[in-house]
Design a protein around this nucleic acid. Structure first.
Length: 367
RNA sequence: GUGGUCGUAGCUCAGUUGGUAGAGCCCCAGAUUGUGAUUCUGGUUGUCGCGGGUUCGAGCCCCGUCGAUCACC
């Protein structure tokens, strides 16, 4: 485990850090001021979604994504590769890029490495992710190898675009993170990492995880990639994870995380607590005056489980907001605690005691 | 009073020529990992208004009865 400071165009990010997802220019249900209050230092935006709607040129003309959304702190934009994989109806991957039918009106579109870089430059994010191909799980080794090769060639094209279009360096410059692929194969992960490091980016992400693989495979993918990434550059595990997974990966030297889980499950009635996930809608809470958990943010601590259950059963929008707020608070506290523990040299104990309590009452397995 | 229609799960209803009861909602529980609030997956629930009859067998047919509703008198 390690801690650090990431200096970006719109401010400093302390690591390890969790980055809430603001896919369409909004962390669903929350006000930017609330995110600041929660201690969020960097949030995500998404190239694919913002390109389709309202359009990156519109956002650029209105001053960029920070100005557009009023979020003044650092932002990271995902390249769109994953969304083309997960959302588009039909897609055809070619050397040039990905042809697909978008999920909004079915129009045929083409996303290329250069276009992804251009869109992200228009958005003005602090960190732009390279355009990659995210292979599915399970994945034959030959496919994973071919896919990795394509991702590396696209990385080179992204690099060329960056050098040509953004020659300036220094403060305020947009940073770029490469994405290590290679599925579950150790040698491919190593190869991918080496090829990306050769091209020299500002940070490195581990992609192709959280695509349906078992947890052990996910950890192994991280372990296969981390040793080949430079120690002085940030490492980002894309799309992860559950609270215990976050701690496990911090223990493996990962600095940044993003995951829709805290906000998505919040909208479906699940609250994270020190004793594991809590199904707020369950009948057992119908008359429970207790708060969600002892670590609640003051804004949520005053509400009983009975009231929160009622809000969900009644379909009240406040329920979505309160649990989104609560779950992000939980995640951001988790990583803040990790930073403190790392600084004090007690991270292993912090991790173990958290996981022991979190999983104590769990009867189900998280596959 | 006469004639018609209808009584099936908590609610709204489907049940083919009689073959041993289903759906949606609700309720109960689970899922969710580079974003799906309005999603997905499971599960519980019936004296088929009641009482007789016909039949090997009735939610379906016959008789009676109760209730709802409509039309006419």
């Amino acid at each position: 485990a390690r801690s650090g400071r990431l200096e970006l165009a719109h401010g400093v990010v302390e690591t390890p850090m969790f980055m809430p997802g603001g896919t369409q220019g909004s962390v669903k249900t929350l006000h930017p001021d609330e995110l600041e209050e929660l201690g969020a230092q960097i949030i995500l935006g998404n190239t694919y979604h913002l390109w389709l709607r309202p359009g990156h040129e519109l956002i650029r003309d209105l001053g960029g994504l920070h100005e557009f959304t009023t979020w003044r702190k650092p932002m990271l934009t995902d390249s769109g590769g994953f969304q083309v994989w997960s959302l588009a109806k039909m897609r055809k991957i070619t050397e040039e890029g990905v042809q697909f039918q978008n999920h909004l009106d079915g129009n045929k579109m083409l996303l290329t490495p250069e276009l992804s870089m251009e869109i992200q430059a228009s958005l003005g994010s602090d960190i732009a992710m390279l355009f990659d191909e995210c292979p599915p799980y399970p994945c034959e080794k030959q496919y994973a190898a071919d896919s990795l090769g394509l991702t590396s060639r696209w990385a080179k094209r992204c690099k060329d675009w960056i050098v040509e279009r953004q020659p300036r360096s220094g403060e305020g410059r947009q940073q770029h993170f490469g994405i290590v692929q290679g599925s579950i194969y150790a040698d491919l992960r190593e190869q991918s990492a080496r090829e990306l490091v050769e091209l020299d980016f500002d940070g490195y992400a581990i992609g192709g995880v959280s695509v349906g693989e078992p947890e052990e495979e996910m950890f192994r993918a991280i372990d296969h990639a981390v040793p080949f990434l430079p120690a002085d550059k940030p490492r980002y595990a894309m799309g992860l994870g559950t609270p215990p997974q976050i701690l496990e990966m911090i223990g493996r030297g990962v600095d940044l995380f993003d995951c829709v889980m805290p906000t998505r499950v919040a909208r479906h009635g699940v609250a994270f607590t020190l004793d594991g996930p809590l199904q707020v809608k369950n009948a057992e809470h119908a008359r429970d005056p207790a708060p969600l958990c002892e670590s609640c943010h003051p804004h949520v601590a005053g509400f009983s489980r009975a009231y929160l259950r009622h809000l969900f059963k009644a379909g009240e929008m406040l329920s979505l907001r309160l649990l989104s707020f609560h779950n992000l608070h939980f995640y951001l506290r988790l990583v803040a605690g990790a930073r403190t523990a790392i600084a004090e040299g007690t991270f292993p104990e912090y991790k173990e005691s958290f996981i022991r309590r979190y999983q104590r009452h769990q009867t189900k397995t998280s596959s």
